[in-house]
């Protein structure tokens, strides 16, 4: 699919703010499933953009606005071509038995993704849920699919039922949430069973797209990282564009920063994903 994506975050402050320092996870990288053709990033008021690559190889842009400003716009424009993943496992594949889990723990890039992290814990109660959900399944990929189905069944999707900083614990307690929470809960379940799982921030090409989306990837021996979307109970296909990966939302927040000034502000975010041709 050839996609054109515009992502605009706008802040209107009730009074001028200053000394604003921000970090952005907005630039996706090309890989086997997506080819980035162009990427533009615009800041208003204008600021010098710098970037670096973080520990998980995501591109991070950062900028500062020292002078007082009453509004801030961060806008990115992206052209990307996506393809179905050639290495995606079929729904009914049984590629790796349980006893192969151990070898994934020795893969150093998996280490961070079997630990608890800021929004994801591995409490005994969560472990219980995970164990019950996989029942007697002994294949790792099939286990992951069962966990995804469980999350999809167990949680009710409800806008505004949680906040951007809601922890998995609270989501499980109230059994409702949004994509971010679905992803966090499934990460918790996977990590309880020591299946390496990482958070993915990105875009979903649907007509209703109006914000960023979140899903996750699990690591399966020989097959590598496999993308699963617990919100929709399906593997991620070519309608998904990956922005960044990390342990959880905290590692990949699209826009994060601090400033000096009022807490009275209004944030509006627009995401448009359009098919080209």
């Amino acid at each position: 699919m050839r996609l054109e994506i515009r992502h605009r975050t706008h802040y209107a402050y009730a009074a001028p703010v200053r000394e604003s320092f921000n970090e952005l996870h907005l630039q996706p990288a090309s890989n086997g499933r997506q080819q980035i053709e162009s990427f533009f990033l615009k800041i208003l008021p204008s600021a010098r953009l710098r970037h670096y690559h973080d520990f998980y190889a995501n591109c991070v842009h950062h900028f500062e606005l020292a002078d007082p400003h009453s509004a801030l716009t961060i806008e990115s424009q992206l052209r990307v071509t996506t393809r179905p993943a050639t290495d995606a496992l079929p729904w009914d594949a049984r590629p790796a038995a349980l006893d192969r889990l151990r070898e994934t723990w020795r893969v150093s890039q998996c280490h961070d993704f079997i630990q608890a992290s800021r929004y994801v814990d591995t409490a005994p109660e969560t472990w219980r849920l995970a164990v019950d959900a996989v029942e007697d399944e002994t294949d790792l990929w099939q286990r992951a699919l069962r966990l995804m189905a469980f999350v999809h069944r167990h949680l009710v999707y409800e806008s505004r039922s949680t906040q951007v900083h809601t922890h998995t614990r609270e989501v499980l307690a109230q059994r409702r949430g949004v994509c971010q929470d679905f992803a966090h809960v499934m990460l918790s379940l996977c990590r309880c069973l020591r299946i390496p799982a990482r958070y993915v921030s990105g875009y979903l090409a649907t007509e209703a797209a109006s914000a960023t989306h979140a899903w996750l990837e699990v690591y399966i021996p020989d097959a590598g990282w496999q993308a699963l979307d617990p919100t929709h109970n399906r593997p991620a296909d070519e309608t998904y564009v990956t922005l960044a990966v990390g342990r959880d939302y905290a590692d990949v927040a699209p826009v994060r920063g601090t400033y000096k000034g009022t807490t009275e502000r209004l944030m509006t975010v627009e995401v448009q994903v359009e098919l080209r041709d």
Binding site: Y11, S159, A209, A253, T258, Y259, G261, T263
Partner: peptide
């Protein structure tokens, strides 16, 4: 007015 505050962040979600 001079307190340091965190930039508001948007939750990752698909609006229905």
């Amino acid at each position: 007015e001079t307190r340091r505050v965190q930039q508001e962040e948007q939750q990752q979600q698909q609006l229905p």
